[in-house]
Computed example of a mutant assay.
Amino acid sequence: MFTRLLLVIFTLTGSLIMMTGPVLAEQNTSFHLAANSELENTERNVRDKDNATLTPEDQKETKKDIQITAQIRKTVVRDKSLSIDAQNAKIITRSGVVTLRGPVASEAESKTLQKIAKKTRGVVKVDNQLEIKAP
């Protein structure tokens, strides 16, 4: 009985896929971003894949580095004057060296994040790679 039920389901599913396949194919339209779109970040993604730029995956797993990153993140998120972009900036700590990356709304936000990182206990150096978003 169970085998027969599976056969019926398979047969029906196969028929449905065959019937809807061409319909779905006709409805499948490609989504292309304009080169000047804020969402177009292909160049940034290529840059991040070349291993020359730190990404969050490069975060050291030492207790001290994790604590530094967590403290900076906590302070940044609590600062309601910062934009969502600034609050979501990448914070990567390796042996006490903090790298800040990502878009921020202004030079002032960039300096605020850098100041927060520098004030955090255990930070040896801050590498500010934040990018100011175009207005």
Rank of each mutant, 00 (worst) to 15 (best):
V97W: 00
S110G: 10
A89F: 04
L33M: 11
V124K: 15
A25M: 13
M1W: 12
K133F: 05
K60L: 04
N36V: 09
A25H: 11
Q67S: 13
L54G: 08
N36D: 14
E43V: 13
L113E: 03
L16D: 01
V46S: 08
P56A: 01
T13Q: 02
K119C: 00
A52D: 08
D127M: 08
T42W: 07
A108V: 11
T53V: 14
N88Y: 05
N28P: 00
I84M: 05
I84A: 11
A34H: 03
D85A: 12
L33Y: 12
R101Y: 14
I132A: 02
V97K: 15
V46T: 08
N36I: 03
G21H: 08
M19K: 03
V123I: 05
E40V: 09
A89W: 09
T11C: 11
L7G: 10
P135M: 12
D65I: 05
E131K: 15
R94F: 04
E38T: 08
M18Y: 10
A134G: 12
A105W: 02
T13C: 13
L12R: 01
R4Q: 13
K80I: 12
I17A: 14
T99Q: 01
I66L: 15
V76C: 07
H32V: 15
N88G: 03
T11H: 00
I17K: 01
R73A: 08
M18H: 08
Q129K: 15
D58E: 02
S37K: 04
V76K: 08
S37E: 10
A134M: 11
K64F: 03
A35Y: 11
D79V: 07
M1S: 12
I92V: 11
H32E: 15
K115S: 14
K63R: 07
G96E: 06
N45S: 14
D85N: 12
A25F: 11
D50P: 04
P22N: 10
Q27V: 11
Q129E: 09
T11W: 00
D85E: 15
T13R: 02
V76M: 06
R94N: 09
T55F: 02
S30W: 09
V77S: 07
N28I: 02
Q114I: 01
D50Q: 15
V8S: 05
V97G: 01
H32I: 13
A86H: 01
S95R: 11
K111E: 13
I132H: 10
V123Y: 07
S81Q: 13
H32W: 09
V23Y: 11
V104S: 02
A117W: 05
K64C: 00
N51S: 13
T120I: 03
A105S: 09
M1C: 09
K111F: 07
